[in-house]
């Protein structure tokens, strides 16, 4: 399994969060949205200008700017679709 950051995930790919590299208020906000290690996350849609990207997390769709996504470490899920 390959480790990388969330901003490198492409459309409709699913991954699992492994670590958060942000801190302070931003880290807390990510966690409030349900982005904690172990959370499955998937790219739902990309803004017309390429940034931000909206992710499906715990049943809701949340848009993050690229710089925030770059601070979230993930591992790719196996190819098959596991997302409900």
């Amino acid at each position: 399994m390959e480790t990388r950051t969330l901003d490198t995930l492409s459309r409709h790919q699913t991954a699992v969060v492994t670590a958060l590299h942000s801190d302070g208020a931003e880290r807390r906000r990510m966690m409030d949205l349900g982005i904690v290690p172990g959370t499955a996350i998937r790219v739902e849609m990309v803004s017309p200008l390429g940034d931000p990207v909206a992710y499906l997390v715990r049943g809701s769709v949340v848009a993050l700017r690229r710089e925030q996504a770059a601070k979230i470490e993930i591992t790719l899920q196996p190819a098959e679709e596991t997302q409900p």
């Binding site: 942000s22 931003e26 906000r29 990510m30 949205l33 931000p52 909206a54 809701s60 769709v61 949340v62 848009a63 993050l64 700017r65 710089e67 925030q68």
Partner: peptide
């Protein structure tokens, strides 16, 4: 500053 926006159904 960073922010997150929820897109409601």
């Amino acid at each position: 500053s960073t922010f997150s926006l929820e897109l409601p159904p």
